[in-house]
Design a binder for these strands. Structure first.
Length: 194
DNA sequence: CACGCGATTCGCT
DNA sequence: GCGAATCGCGTGT
Protein backbone atom coordinates (compact mmCIF):
# COMPACT_ATOMS: atom_id res chain seq x y z
CA UNK A 1 0.00 0.00 0.00
CA UNK A 2 1.49 3.37 -1.00
CA UNK A 3 2.62 6.03 1.47
CA UNK A 4 0.11 8.85 2.16
CA UNK A 5 0.84 12.26 0.68
CA UNK A 6 2.36 14.71 3.21
CA UNK A 7 0.49 17.67 4.60
CA UNK A 8 2.63 20.00 2.47
CA UNK A 9 0.94 18.64 -0.66
CA UNK A 10 -2.25 20.38 0.45
CA UNK A 11 -0.58 23.66 1.46
CA UNK A 12 -0.87 25.08 -2.03
CA UNK A 13 -3.37 26.89 -4.18
CA UNK A 14 -6.71 25.04 -4.16
CA UNK A 15 -7.10 24.67 -7.92
CA UNK A 16 -3.55 23.38 -8.27
CA UNK A 17 -4.22 20.76 -5.62
CA UNK A 18 -7.52 19.91 -7.31
CA UNK A 19 -5.71 19.21 -10.57
CA UNK A 20 -2.87 17.29 -8.96
CA UNK A 21 -5.24 15.05 -7.03
CA UNK A 22 -6.17 13.44 -10.34
CA UNK A 23 -4.31 10.13 -10.58
CA UNK A 24 -3.79 9.91 -6.81
CA UNK A 25 -5.52 7.13 -4.87
CA UNK A 26 -8.08 7.43 -2.07
CA UNK A 27 -7.92 4.51 0.36
CA UNK A 28 -10.43 3.66 3.09
CA UNK A 29 -9.97 1.02 5.79
CA UNK A 30 -13.03 -0.15 7.73
CA UNK A 31 -12.01 -2.89 10.09
CA UNK A 32 -9.99 -5.30 8.00
CA UNK A 33 -11.61 -4.22 4.75
CA UNK A 34 -9.80 -1.94 2.33
CA UNK A 35 -11.67 -0.10 -0.41
CA UNK A 36 -10.54 2.67 -2.71
CA UNK A 37 -9.50 3.77 -6.13
CA UNK A 38 -7.87 6.34 -8.36
CA UNK A 39 -9.22 9.89 -8.28
CA UNK A 40 -10.46 10.82 -11.76
CA UNK A 41 -12.65 13.88 -11.14
CA UNK A 42 -12.39 16.84 -8.72
CA UNK A 43 -13.81 20.30 -8.17
CA UNK A 44 -12.21 23.24 -6.38
CA UNK A 45 -14.19 25.43 -3.98
CA UNK A 46 -12.67 28.65 -2.66
CA UNK A 47 -13.56 31.06 0.13
CA UNK A 48 -14.93 34.60 0.25
CA UNK A 49 -14.54 34.86 -3.53
CA UNK A 50 -16.71 31.89 -4.34
CA UNK A 51 -20.47 32.07 -3.60
CA UNK A 52 -20.83 28.36 -4.41
CA UNK A 53 -18.45 27.42 -1.59
CA UNK A 54 -19.61 26.53 1.89
CA UNK A 55 -16.78 28.78 3.11
CA UNK A 56 -18.28 31.80 1.35
CA UNK A 57 -20.10 33.00 4.49
CA UNK A 58 -17.17 32.47 6.81
CA UNK A 59 -16.53 29.75 9.39
CA UNK A 60 -20.12 28.63 10.00
CA UNK A 61 -20.51 25.40 12.02
CA UNK A 62 -20.76 23.28 8.88
CA UNK A 63 -17.82 24.84 7.08
CA UNK A 64 -15.57 25.18 10.14
CA UNK A 65 -13.29 22.35 9.01
CA UNK A 66 -12.41 24.31 5.89
CA UNK A 67 -10.90 27.03 8.09
CA UNK A 68 -8.68 24.62 9.99
CA UNK A 69 -5.45 22.90 8.89
CA UNK A 70 -5.01 21.52 5.39
CA UNK A 71 -4.92 17.82 4.59
CA UNK A 72 -8.13 17.05 6.50
CA UNK A 73 -11.38 15.60 5.24
CA UNK A 74 -14.41 17.85 4.97
CA UNK A 75 -17.49 15.63 4.76
CA UNK A 76 -20.99 17.07 4.54
CA UNK A 77 -24.48 15.64 4.26
CA UNK A 78 -26.65 16.67 1.32
CA UNK A 79 -30.21 16.11 0.08
CA UNK A 80 -31.03 14.15 3.20
CA UNK A 81 -29.33 11.10 1.70
CA UNK A 82 -25.75 11.54 0.61
CA UNK A 83 -22.33 12.43 1.91
CA UNK A 84 -19.79 14.38 -0.11
CA UNK A 85 -16.06 14.01 0.51
CA UNK A 86 -13.73 16.99 0.25
CA UNK A 87 -10.06 17.64 0.95
CA UNK A 88 -9.09 20.86 2.75
CA UNK A 89 -6.36 22.85 0.98
CA UNK A 90 -4.74 26.10 2.14
CA UNK A 91 -2.31 28.47 0.48
CA UNK A 92 -3.11 31.31 2.86
CA UNK A 93 -6.70 31.38 1.69
CA UNK A 94 -9.44 28.87 2.39
CA UNK A 95 -10.24 26.10 -0.04
CA UNK A 96 -11.52 22.58 -0.43
CA UNK A 97 -11.63 20.02 -3.21
CA UNK A 98 -14.69 17.86 -3.83
CA UNK A 99 -13.85 14.37 -5.09
CA UNK A 100 -16.50 13.45 -7.66
CA UNK A 101 -15.18 10.28 -9.30
CA UNK A 102 -12.98 7.28 -8.52
CA UNK A 103 -11.73 4.42 -10.66
CA UNK A 104 -12.24 1.32 -8.46
CA UNK A 105 -9.01 -0.38 -7.45
CA UNK A 106 -9.31 -2.09 -4.05
CA UNK A 107 -12.20 -3.93 -2.40
CA UNK A 108 -14.46 -4.00 -5.43
CA UNK A 109 -16.73 -6.76 -4.01
CA UNK A 110 -17.17 -4.78 -0.79
CA UNK A 111 -17.89 -1.58 -2.69
CA UNK A 112 -20.45 -3.44 -4.80
CA UNK A 113 -22.10 -4.74 -1.63
CA UNK A 114 -22.29 -1.28 -0.05
CA UNK A 115 -23.64 0.21 -3.26
CA UNK A 116 -26.14 -2.56 -3.91
CA UNK A 117 -25.05 -3.16 -7.48
CA UNK A 118 -22.60 -5.31 -9.40
CA UNK A 119 -22.24 -2.78 -12.17
CA UNK A 120 -18.56 -1.79 -11.99
CA UNK A 121 -19.19 1.43 -13.85
CA UNK A 122 -21.78 2.51 -11.29
CA UNK A 123 -19.83 2.02 -8.06
CA UNK A 124 -17.87 5.24 -7.63
CA UNK A 125 -18.76 7.55 -10.54
CA UNK A 126 -20.30 10.32 -8.44
CA UNK A 127 -19.65 12.16 -5.16
CA UNK A 128 -22.46 10.46 -3.22
CA UNK A 129 -21.73 7.08 -4.74
CA UNK A 130 -18.06 6.99 -3.84
CA UNK A 131 -18.64 7.94 -0.21
CA UNK A 132 -21.16 5.13 0.04
CA UNK A 133 -18.77 2.67 -1.61
CA UNK A 134 -15.90 3.64 0.71
CA UNK A 135 -17.99 3.82 3.87
CA UNK A 136 -17.35 7.54 4.36
CA UNK A 137 -19.86 9.28 6.64
CA UNK A 138 -20.15 12.24 8.96
CA UNK A 139 -17.74 10.56 11.38
CA UNK A 140 -14.93 11.05 8.85
CA UNK A 141 -15.41 14.82 8.95
CA UNK A 142 -12.09 16.29 10.07
CA UNK A 143 -10.16 13.05 9.55
CA UNK A 144 -6.43 13.44 8.90
CA UNK A 145 -5.73 12.24 5.35
CA UNK A 146 -1.97 11.91 5.92
CA UNK A 147 -2.32 8.95 8.29
CA UNK A 148 -4.91 6.58 9.67
CA UNK A 149 -7.84 4.81 8.06
CA UNK A 150 -8.65 7.30 5.33
CA UNK A 151 -5.69 8.47 3.27
CA UNK A 152 -4.66 9.79 -0.12
CA UNK A 153 -1.45 8.47 -1.70
CA UNK A 154 0.45 8.49 -4.98
CA UNK A 155 -1.21 6.42 -7.66
CA UNK A 156 -0.20 4.54 -10.80
CA UNK A 157 2.24 6.57 -12.91
CA UNK A 158 0.11 6.43 -16.07
CA UNK A 159 -0.97 9.97 -16.96
CA UNK A 160 -3.78 10.97 -19.28
CA UNK A 161 -4.84 14.35 -20.57
CA UNK A 162 -6.76 16.52 -18.10
CA UNK A 163 -9.88 18.40 -19.08
CA UNK A 164 -11.41 21.41 -17.29
CA UNK A 165 -15.02 22.50 -17.20
CA UNK A 166 -17.49 24.35 -15.04
CA UNK A 167 -18.63 22.74 -11.82
CA UNK A 168 -21.62 20.42 -11.75
CA UNK A 169 -24.75 21.88 -10.18
CA UNK A 170 -23.24 25.34 -9.74
CA UNK A 171 -25.04 28.26 -11.33
CA UNK A 172 -22.94 31.34 -11.97
CA UNK A 173 -22.96 34.23 -14.40
CA UNK A 174 -19.35 33.90 -15.39
CA UNK A 175 -18.46 30.21 -15.72
CA UNK A 176 -15.35 29.35 -13.75
CA UNK A 177 -13.50 26.25 -14.86
CA UNK A 178 -12.94 24.76 -11.42
CA UNK A 179 -13.76 21.16 -12.38
CA UNK A 180 -10.96 18.81 -13.38
CA UNK A 181 -11.25 15.33 -14.88
CA UNK A 182 -9.15 12.73 -16.60
CA UNK A 183 -10.15 12.82 -20.24
CA UNK A 184 -12.41 10.02 -21.43
CA UNK A 185 -12.26 8.18 -18.12
CA UNK A 186 -15.28 5.98 -17.64
CA UNK A 187 -15.67 6.83 -13.95
CA UNK A 188 -16.15 10.56 -14.37
CA UNK A 189 -19.63 11.33 -12.98
CA UNK A 190 -20.90 13.17 -16.05
CA UNK A 191 -19.45 13.79 -19.47
CA UNK A 192 -17.51 17.00 -19.84
CA UNK A 193 -18.92 19.33 -22.51
CA UNK A 194 -15.48 19.54 -24.12
C1' DC B 1 -38.57 28.49 15.78
C1' DA B 2 -40.29 28.02 10.85
C1' DC B 3 -39.05 27.93 6.14
C1' DG B 4 -36.47 27.05 1.82
C1' DC B 5 -33.38 24.48 -0.54
C1' DG B 6 -29.06 21.96 -1.79
C1' DA B 7 -21.48 20.57 -4.56
C1' DT B 8 -27.29 13.97 -5.43
C1' DT B 9 -29.17 9.61 -6.71
C1' DC B 10 -32.61 6.50 -8.31
C1' DG B 11 -36.70 4.93 -10.48
C1' DC B 12 -40.30 5.75 -13.57
C1' DT B 13 -42.12 7.74 -17.95
C1' DG C 1 -36.02 13.75 -18.95
C1' DC C 2 -38.39 14.51 -14.58
C1' DG C 3 -39.60 14.36 -9.90
C1' DA C 4 -39.44 12.27 -5.23
C1' DA C 5 -36.78 11.13 -1.25
C1' DT C 6 -35.02 13.18 3.04
C1' DC C 7 -32.68 16.24 6.56
C1' DG C 8 -29.65 19.61 8.38
C1' DC C 9 -27.85 24.13 7.56
C1' DG C 10 -28.33 29.08 7.13
C1' DT C 11 -31.37 32.83 7.17
C1' DG C 12 -34.95 35.62 8.78
C1' DT C 13 -38.71 36.40 12.20
Amino acid sequence: MPEPLPSSFYARETLLVARELLGKVLISRRGGTVTGGTIVETEGYLGADDPASHAFRGPTPRAAIMFGPQGKAYVYFIYGNHFCFNVVAHDGTVGAILVRGLEPLWGIPEMARRRGTDDMGNLTNGPGKLTRALGITRSENGADLTSGDLVIADGPPARRAIVRSRRVGVKEEKPRLFRFAIKDNRFVSRPCPW
